[in-house]
Amino acid sequence: MEKNHVFHQIPDYLDGNLNKSAVAEFEKHLEQCADCQKELEEMKTFFNVFEEEVPTPSDRLKAKFESTLEQQKLNQGKVVQLESKPSSNWTGNILKIAASIALLVAAFQMGSLFQQRKVNEDIAQLQDETNQMKQTTMLSLMENQSASKRIQGVNYIEEFEQPDEAIIQALANRLLYDENDNVRMTAFEALVNFTSSEIVKTTFIEALEQEQNPSIQVAIIQALVQIQEKKAAEPMKKLLEKEDTQPFIKDQIKAVLPSLT
């Protein structure tokens, strides 16, 4: 008997898919077979769980959900729509193109930036070379045989905002050693703009000790007093004692000496 178990027919039976003869035969077997009865019971319970315990959302719930969703959509406003659009295929492509263009532009910008930097470097180098050239011109002019050319060389100082030490020293040498009074005077006028430089201060003091031209003497005295250079007092006293010092220089020194000592 056992071989005639009807397990496979249980689902059909429960669903009512069997014809009458099959149902009769199934029920007849069921009365004799405890196994099949038990199986049927379990199957029935199983189906019942399915049918009863999976709740279908009620219409009310559904309506409420829909309205909440609408509400949410409304609350999020147009942003939702805008966000939803680019997700479509062709806008994505445009985005990609835009991104590549942006990349290209960025790369170009970077390139031109570097180029600019290079150009700036070149310009800086050129300026450096121009300065170098000016300096060479200036220094060579200052060695010229002609006093006018030496003055022109000294006047070149106007081309430099921040003259380096070599230039200052060259001007100092003009002030100290040039044989022409006008060149020395011009060199003084150039140097007087850089009295913060130690070279200039010491040069002025040295020049005051050896300068013979009274015009330059008085100019140096005034410059040294203006920067309150205490070391200038000694050479001034010496000038006071010298016989050939011009009277107006002595007067000048007498007037300013108290402020230095």
């Binding site: 006093a147 003055i151 031209n213």
Partner: peptide, 29 residues
Amino acid sequence: PVTANSLNGELEVVFGKVTQDSPISLYST
């Protein structure tokens, strides 16, 4: 181009046409 300097004397300069670019410097004390 003229570079002239005097100490106690006068400095008198009468220029003709001046066309060069070298400086002119006239000082007297």
